[in-house]
Design a binder for these strands. Structure first.
Length: 223
DNA sequence: CACCAGGCAAGTA
DNA sequence: TACTTGCATGGT
């Protein structure tokens, strides 16, 4: 039990054993996932849910709905999610992209390769690596691993990565050592978030962390 | 009361 | 390249 492959598999198995399937992403449509991915940037999901509810209540949770809304009204509706002025611009930039590239049609978007999509998403103002990958994995069902603050914290705590490993390094650790399986990546990230939100949060010492018996010390990231 | 949450861009050195 | 700062609400 010392190769990164075996280790990452074991962590997954331990978490799945402990928490079971998480059924991610919590949303009723691919577009809702995309909007949620932007709204949840450095923001608690609880606050995002309020904003999503507001959008649904107004019947504007669609590419057309967001596009036709004035910035002022959009800002008001997403206010509970925080950074509402910034996020209004980001949502607008994103839906503009959807219409320019795909006529506002998500199915059209899904036809493109994950590599092409990722490049395009990263060019949109307000879409960084995590948001892009969340959209790719959870909205478009492309096999890509999402790295977030929880992932970083958990791996770092178990001394599997250095504290200042880059996004791409961490993503590579998973993608180079696991089968490129969308279902697996989906569940894996969801399990990390669940662990981070529950145990790691409340129990600083991590005494009852489900990830047990792993070898301490850094895992080789490059290979 | 302080602290932080499922980031990102822009500015500085 | 490698820090630092602004953005903002709501829960604990």
């Amino acid at each position: 039990m010392k190769s990164p492959k075996a280790l990452l598999k074991k962590i997954y198995n331990d978490l799945y054993q402990a928490f079971g399937p998480r059924n991610w992403w919590p949303a009723e449509s691919a577009f809702e996932v995309m909007i949620g991915a932007i709204l949840t940037q450095n923001t608690s999901w609880n606050n995002v849910e309020k904003a999503i509810r507001n959008l649904k209540k107004k019947g504007v949770l669609s590419p057309e709905g967001i596009r036709n809304l004035s910035k002022l009204k959009l800002a008001y509706l997403i206010k509970p999610a925080g950074y509402y002025r910034v996020k209004t611009g980001r949502l607008k930039a994103f839906v503009n992209f959807l219409f320019e590239e795909y006529k506002g049609n998500i199915n059209r978007m899904k036809l493109e390769s994950v590599e092409t999509l990722r490049e395009k998403l990263l060019k949109i103002h307000g879409i960084g690596p995590e948001t892009a990958d969340s959209i790719l994995l959870y909205a478009l069902e492309k096999p890509i691993f999402v790295v977030d603050a929880y992932t970083r914290r958990i791996l770092s705590r178990h001394k599997l990565i250095s504290a200042k490993a880059s996004y791409n390094e961490i993503q590579g650790l998973f993608m180079n050592n696991l089968p490129k399986d969308e279902k697996l990546f989906n569940e894996y990230h969801a399990l990390f978030v669940h662990l981070g939100k529950t145990l790691c949060k409340k129990i600083p010492k991590c005494d009852i962390c489900p990830i047990k018996g792993i070898e301490k010390g850094k895992v080789k990231i490059n290979n």
